[in-house]
Amino acid sequence: MPTALITGITGQDGLYLSELLLAKGYEVHGIVRGQNNPKRDLVRRTVPDVHLHTGDLTDLSSLIRAMATAQPDEVYNLGAVSFVAYSWENARVTTDVTGNGVLNVLEAVRLYCGDDLSRVRYYQASSSEMFGKVQEVPQRESTLLWPRSPYGVAKVFGHYMTINYRESYGMHASSGILFNHESPRRGPEFVTRKVSMAVARIAEGRQDKLVMGNLDAQRDWGFAGDYVEGMWRMLQQPEADDYVLATGETHSIRDLLDVAFAHVGIDDWSGRVEQDPRFMRPAEVDLLVGDASKARDRLGWTPTVGFEDLVRMMVDADLALLRAER
């Protein structure tokens, strides 16, 4: 039975990845920050067979202890301060966790492996936000990185640190450059979930308006459940490498609103959505769309859930949550 250790297990990717690995017969361990983290119960309810350890990406000693206890064959570093807007408000914390945290996990893996660096295969959650002010359309593994947020800068540091450990120590360390991937498990602060929750509330008569920022930003949106399959496939390869995971399609925030509102029978949402400069980024990322041909050719990975089905899935899930509260 292979063993996996996951940081960031309380997030949507961590939960989907845990389910995937358990279904494949893995013993799964997860690191949760803080002894009284309220999300610990979420993990226990969703994936009760996961073994949880207390740890922190900024505390190398806690990561070393978790490695020694879990004895993993694979390590998936999904932990981060991942809300881009927050990274401007607290760039230092974002840098410490999302950037320096990667170095800590890599170092914990290296120290755990000792002279046998083939003992562990490592996955780093890189991000399409690293492309920022895009220099090429679509973006691929070789595209110049030009991040436009503290979050993106921190992700670039972690990405190149992963490459450095692979090239310096021969570690089987791969990075997945994942474009936006969403699900009903997405946090309410993210734009897709903000929209699906608001649309559900408006449909149920519990909310009148949705306040948004830039409606013209374009993203490549896929389903998180598809993307964790790609993470796992990367670590099954004989050689470590970096891969873009994306749908290859781009949609605007307006497209997102069109599909979400239409799903609840509202064709004209113009009177229900307001724009507020407070929700605008200081430096916007206007267009992200990925070329996942390398992942398709080498990993056999393709997304299975399209944009419209994804949006409808999220709205339906939020409607179900609201109706369960009655």
Rank of each mutant, 00 (worst) to 15 (best):
G11R: 05
T304M: 10
F261P: 01
M67T: 10
V105I: 14
F190A: 03
G213N: 01
S196L: 03
T10A: 08
W269I: 01
F307Q: 06
G34V: 13
L215Y: 02
R254W: 00
V244F: 12
F307H: 06
H29L: 13
R33A: 08
K155W: 10
E239I: 02
N104W: 05
D242P: 07
Q12C: 05
I177F: 03
P277Q: 02
L106K: 07
N180K: 06
G225W: 00
R281L: 15
T98F: 03
Y112W: 05
F131A: 14
V137I: 15
V153N: 10
G230P: 13
G25N: 15
Q135H: 13
A200V: 04
R312I: 01
A260F: 03
L42K: 08
H181F: 00
G187C: 01
I9L: 10
E141D: 09
V43C: 11
M67F: 09
A198I: 03
S126D: 09
L20P: 02
Y227D: 15
L145A: 02
R278C: 04
L22F: 08
A91Q: 09
R40A: 09
G79S: 12
S174F: 06
F83Q: 03
G306I: 02
L21H: 01
S175T: 08
R254G: 01
D297F: 00
